[in-house]
């Protein structure tokens, strides 16, 4: 038996290169975001800089229309999450609780949609949105994000629903509760944690989506955060890197914190059968 201390040292040494590479971009982000503009391009390149320029964040906020993009991202992500859950909860409940004709077919269909990435369909989706006049409309993203996340949310919710014993509802029926009442008073309260976790993952997925937002949204005012930041980099002669990094910090850090806190639920979900 190796002692836990010895194991700790060996493991951290093994993980060290990866940890460094993972943390490198975060360091780059912070160090650039607070660096004076004049010190972006120095030779030889170096990590250190003369002073913290917190004003970079303020300047960036104004110049890049960060607030607008933030609101757009929030609107799209929240709406898409709500929509996806509204459609997924009944479907996951049906999959978890009922036998019905075509159930296997429906599940395979869901698996297929999970595999279809937006990029392969992006041209068709674009033509669809043109036909409905939804190009340059954030709602086109709401609908598509909801649809592309649904397979995941149904999958995740179903695997959690399966862990809520069916007998609880049956007992409620025997106690005289209607289907609706037992759903509202017995099932849903127990399913809340699962729904919250699923909602947050859907939110993060929508928050981070790039290809569809890049395609559907044409005007600066409607950019979501990833597209806004990309637009600061793409096809520009002069890139204001300190602004770009300041924006990246603001756009990613809150999400990264929430995600770090939740990742163990994802592992549990996988163990419960999201993979099975």
């Amino acid at each position: 038996m190796i002692s836990k201390l010895k194991k700790t040292v060996i493991y951290w040494l093994l993980l060290a290169p990866l940890v460094i590479v993972i943390l490198f971009p975060f360091a780059v982000m912070f160090v650039t975001a607070v660096r004076p503009r004049e010190e972006l391009f120095v030779y030889p390149p170096r990590w250190t800089f003369s002073q913290f320029r917190w004003d970079n964040f303020v300047d960036m906020w104004v110049k890049t229309n960060f607030g607008g993009a933030l609101l757009n991202s929030l609107y799209v992500s929240v709406s898409a999450t709500v929509l996806a859950l509204l459609f997924s909860i009944p479907a996951a409940y049906a999959l978890s609780r009922y036998r019905f004709p075509g159930k296997g077919l429906y599940r395979n269909f869901l698996l297929m949609t999970q595999m279809m990435s937006p990029i392969v369909l992006v041209l068709g989706l674009f033509r669809l949105m043109v036909a409905f006049g939804l190009v340059n409309n954030l709602n086109s993203l709401v609908i598509t994000y909801a649809a592309f996340n649904m397979a995941f949310t149904i999958w995740m919710l179903q695997s959690y629903f399966n862990t809520i014993p069916r007998e609880l509802e049956e007992a409620a029926w025997m106690d005289g509760a209607s289907h609706y009442f037992s759903l509202v008073k017995i099932f849903l309260p127990l399913a809340v944690p699962a729904m919250v976790v699923t909602a947050i993952f859907t939110f993060i997925n929508s928050w981070n989506e790039f290809v569809l937002a890049l395609t559907m949204i044409r005007s600066n005012d409607d950019f979501t955060l990833p597209v806004m930041i990309f637009s600061q980099v793409a096809g520009r002669y002069q890139i204001e890197w300190h602004h770009v990094m300041a924006a990246t910090v603001l756009a990613t850090v809150p999400v990264a914190i929430v995600f770090s806190w939740l990742q163990r639920y994802l592992i549990r979900g996988m163990a419960l059968g999201a993979v099975k």
Partner: peptide, 20 residues
């Protein structure tokens, strides 16, 4: 730490690396 890259959109990661 190992899970961190998952939390961040590929776009942002790529932008930061492009600068790095």
């Amino acid at each position: 730490i190992i899970m961190l890259p998952w939390a961040i959109s590929l776009t942002m990661t790529a932008v930061v690396w492009r600068w790095g």
